[in-house]
Design a protein around this nucleic acid. Structure first.
Lengths: 110, 110
DNA sequence: TAAAGTTAGTTACATAAAGTAAGTTACTTA
DNA sequence: TAAGTAACTTACTTTATGTAACTAACTTTA
């Protein structure tokens, strides 16, 4: 059935980026290290799903988890070099959205 | 809860591209017009989901559906200008995958 | 010292999205 | 008349995600 004429590396890249929330999480982290609760607040993602995604991203070496044993404990997620390397893709999406997403398409999200 | 510090246009663009299969469908169509059954074969997507995605993409003006009343009927999906405008994003992903996706990460998909 | 607060999660249950496989429509050729 | 073809659709199952309550570990407040 599957003839796989698609480049498998491209397919893999898309499968990473098109998993729900992953691109937004990575984009958020491009602004600098973030804590768990900051991300749930900013993205509107559930704690359960964020927890899963961050584990996946850590395992795939996009993100590093740093523990600061303060009180209360502070845990920060930071992009690795691999994570940072996605910046041009994000910029391209950002750029595209400026031309092609209408103001009106976005109203119901506000 | 949601402070929405993210640019809503960027968020919208990501929500389009990160819906499962959408990026792969658009990428396939960049190679030229395609028929329904060609796409199910090449992508390994179910007919049901492809049908849904194509309707969405048509409605959002990424894709046009052309009916050729031959026998049996031929229906071709083609990218619009808006659909084509995503090419630089796809190229950027393609490019990224060449550097950052290892051969080994991809083996189990073949 | 007991109660309440904080961060970073996890768990159990509910809803939504996607996959599977069979069925439908409309037309044709053997 | 039977079988074939393309493009779907439908009913049912599996997987993914959301919600809200709960836990651990430590601290501050009453």
């Amino acid at each position: 059935m599957n003839e796989f004429e698609l480049c498998p590396r491209f397919e893999k890249a898309v499968s990473i980026l098109s998993q729900r929330w992953t691109a937004l999480i990575l984009y958020q982290l491009m602004a600098g290290p973030q804590r768990f609760c900051t991300m749930t607040d900013k993205l509107g993602i559930s704690g359960k799903t964020l927890s899963e995604r961050l584990k996946d991203l850590e395992q795939q070496n996009f993100v590093i988890r740093n523990v600061y044993p303060e009180t209360p404990v502070r845990i920060e997620y930071t992009l690795t070099k691999k994570g940072m390397s996605l910046t041009p893709i994000m910029k391209e999406i950002e750029n595209w959205s400026k031309t092609w997403i209408e103001q009106t398409e976005v109203q119901d999200n506000i």
